[in-house]
Design a protein around this nucleic acid. Structure first.
Length: 426
RNA sequence: GGAUAGAUGGCCGAGUGGUCGAAGGCGCACGAUUGGAAAUCGUGUGUACCCCCAAAGGGUACCGUGAGUUCGAAUCUCACUCUAUCCGCCA
């Protein structure tokens, strides 16, 4: 959510800034018109309330003769007040809805463009693998190593699900454990959170009202399935008044994640790249309302996820996401993409975002600064690791001629010291 | 699933129809005292919004959420959410 006063005072700048995300300027005008209408109504209904309150107070000290007349007068104003209130509530609801649909301002650093074609590669790290044999894709590798039950599980759980077993299942857990250790070394608090969410947190996060189609909903219990621990962690401290000394709050959240993938029909239908349910260890930061501070955390989060990909010895690229491709909540976003040999391209493994105070305004997440002033926090999030997707570049890049998969040194302690996994591994 | 108790400011906690934005305490800020600190004493200290060019000032709302009763609700009624404890069931 944005600050309406800021919009009123910097209208042209706001139009231009939100225009980079293809947000129409007319909607800014519409919002402001509604705002002024709302204020007018507030003023008139508040003076009615004032009058009403004065009369009510007068009743206490009124004589028995005066009292009935004052009560009658107060009643009459009460009726009028009620009508004003109804009008006010209507305009307020309209205004609130418009506010919920205003995207965050993008950073001046973000490339401007309509969609992912305008994203900019900031750097590439690691060497692409050179195979002296015909490399297999991850599905083949799973088959020859008896690592999955992809066909059987589809019968049980439907499309875009997965069941992996043996070394690969162990690898999935091991990678999360390694990432959790890395995050703990960076001062993060490890926290496992539910995949269940009420509706309000979805608005707080900024997923609603934008992408209802993407979310699983269970009407019997009026409960949603979380697409990421970010959803839960963002609302965990909702409505709290922190102190500056409490900040930053660093969470490493682990949870199952659920996505309907409604907009991805036909894409990545096979294998582990895009599934309805997966596990994610998420990085989440609550920090001071200070651009330098949150930019610093944004870089730190990015660096941590690079550390993760480097520990996994995966070649990757850092993508700076353009204004049109980043979601409504985001101020600035980097995606990390790891090399997938079978697709001859980089595929997203991490998404690192600075939300500034946009999310905290919705969540009503504030702190009292050392100067005594109350401010909204800044929030940031980034993937720690998400599986099984991360397993795709992992087993493809590290595959050997005999179908086994090499385990990088940093990961070996989490796999009982194994240097290779697979049927032919010794 | 059944029963009971509860939800008040940054925190604890009093308050059962008007004098309550709310006692008292803690915390915090400033000042006095001190060589400095602690202790002590004094003063101040909620949030959001509206009017006002701004300041000064005035006003409205907020005691879990939503509705209702009333001239008037933290206080009474109803529904809901959450928390605690007990019983039942259970990974």
């Amino acid at each position: 959510m944005l600050d309406i006063k800021f919009i009123a005072e910097n209208t042209e700048w706001v139009k231009q800034s939100l225009g980079k995300k293809d947000f129409p300027a007319e909607k800014v005008d519409e919002l402001l018109a509604t705002y002024y209408e709302l204020n007018k109504l507030k003023t008139s209904s508040q003076s009615l309330a004032e009058e009403k309150n004065k009369l009510s107070n007068a009743i206490k000290s009124a004589s028995n003769e005066e009292r009935p007349a004052i009560i009658a007068q107060s009643k009459a104003i009460g009726e009028e007040f009620k009508i004003e209130q109804e009008k006010l509530a209507e305009i307020q609801a309209k205004f609130d809805d418009m506010m919920l649909r205003m995207p965050n301002y993008p950073s001046e650093e973000s490339p401007i463009g309509p969609d992912d074609s305008a994203n900019v590669v900031r750097r590439k790290v690691g060497e692409l693998p050179h195979f002296d044999f015909e490399p297999k894709d991850h599905i083949e590798l799973m088959e020859i190593n008896d690592w999955s039950e992809m066909e059987r599980i589809a019968k049980v759980s439907g499309s875009r699900t997965y069941a992996i077993k043996n070394d690969l299942a162990q690898l999935e857990i091991a990678i999360h454990m390694m990432v959790m250790d890395i995050l703990r070394q960076h001062g993060f608090t490890l926290i496992t959170v539910p995949a269940l969410s009420k509706e309000k947190p979805l608005y707080n996060q900024g997923y609603l009202p934008f992408a209802r189609d993407e979310i699983y909903y269970m009407p019997t219990d009026d409960i949603y399935l979380s697409g990421t621990a970010e959803l839960i962690l963002n609302s965990l401290r909702a409505d709290e008044m922190l102190t500056e000394a409490d900040l930053p709050v660093l969470y490493a959240g682990f949870s199952p994640c659920f996505r309907r993938e409604a907009g991805a029909a036909g894409k990545d239908t096979r294998g582990l790249v895009r599934v309805h349910q997966f596990f994610k260890t998420e990085q989440f930061v609550i920090c001071k309302n200070d651009m330098a501070e949150s930019e610093k955390w944004h870089q730190t989060l990015l660096q941590i996820s690079e550390e993760v990909l480097q520990a996994l010895e995966l070649p990757y690229q850092v993508l700076e996401v353009c204004t049109g491709d980043m979601g409504a909540p985001k101020y600035r976003q980097y995606d990390l993409e790891a090399w997938v040999p079978s697709q001859n391209c980089y595929r997203e493994t991490h998404s690192c975002s600075n939300i500034t105070d946009w999310q905290a305004r919705r969540t009503n997440l504030r702190y009292r600064g050392n100067d005594g002033k109350v401010k909204f926090c800044h929030t940031l999030n980034n993937t720690g690791i998400a599986t099984p997707r991360a397993l795709v570049p992992f087993i493809e890049n590290h595959q050997q001629k005999d179908g086994t998969v090499r385990i990088p040194e940093k990961l070996q302690p989490y796999l009982g010291g194994k240097k290779f996994i697979g049927k032919n591994a010794k």
